[in-house]
Design a protein around this nucleic acid. Structure first.
Lengths: 134, 134
DNA sequence: GAAAATAGGATAAGAACAGTCGTATTTTCA
DNA sequence: TGAAAATACGACTGTTCTTATCCTATTTTC
């Protein structure tokens, strides 16, 4: 409950790594997984997601790897989460999937007030960038 | 990911109900479960937890049920979560269980920055009371 | 052509959660 | 005094989500 997924954690660790090293340096999934003691295959998938979202750029082949293409200060944590998770993190189902997913939707009395907290969390994720976690 | 458990949702709905009705009124789990279309047995367990935490008081027997014993404004959402969940909601394992639970603890570079967001969420849960969701 | 890397689908193993069931206990009331 | 209605609580089941692994294809370098 209210916990970041390992995928997001690993993604943040990787991006922080890119932000901390010299700009434009190519890193492989293997390098990062070994350095931070993180499962290689899972990290690889996360990096692929980040590449699909254009947060990093991938290079295939023997000397391939990943490079950061934007300045760390322009990469918000919300971007990272959105790229890695298929859905945005939401306090209650109804925010994410709409009324259809929640059988008590009509009777729910806490949805609106919870929206305040939701908004607050969203704001924080959007206001904090990778540059701030280096 | 980052979702309240149904148990907490049901707990908040029940407490909001108590806060909305006349002070001192006894309600049964059955009443509340029917009114808000919530599984009776699960709600009963949640109410028992809230009773154990002295947030509500329980009365056994035929005319039994539950009553709110504190003013809604003094019941913070954080109290409710703590009563229902066995652990506090934490963004990462390491905050909840300590270094032992996370194999990358020593190599983790995002723990401290994530603490900011953690603190923010905690603050919000602690600043918002049941009175504010009526 | 071998080696090393990304790309990505499939699957298994595990954990967390929601929900249900059964039984005991307490209390009221006819 | 016994039936009924409520809480109390432990056990269990099924489902869903998450993590992790496995396998194969593709790309690129040397």
């Amino acid at each position: 409950m209210l916990r970041l997924s390992k995928r997001v954690e690993y993604g943040l660790i990787a991006l922080r790594h890119f932000a901390a090293i010299q700009e434009g340096t190519v890193c492989t999934a293997k390098e990062i997984s070994q350095k931070y003691n993180v499962p290689h295959e899972l990290l690889a998938k996360v990096l692929q997601k980040l590449a699909q979202a254009r947060i990093i750029q991938s290079y295939q082949g023997v000397r391939g790897g990943y490079v950061l293409v934007h300045h760390p200060s322009s990469i918000k944590i919300s971007h990272v989460i959105n790229a890695i998770e298929h859905e945005k993190p939401m306090l209650a189902e109804c925010y994410a999937d709409g009324p259809e997913s929640c059988i008590i939707f009509d009777d729910c009395t806490i949805r609106r007030p919870l929206g305040k907290i939701q908004k607050n969390i969203n704001h924080f994720f959007h206001s904090m960038s990778i540059a701030e976690i280096v």
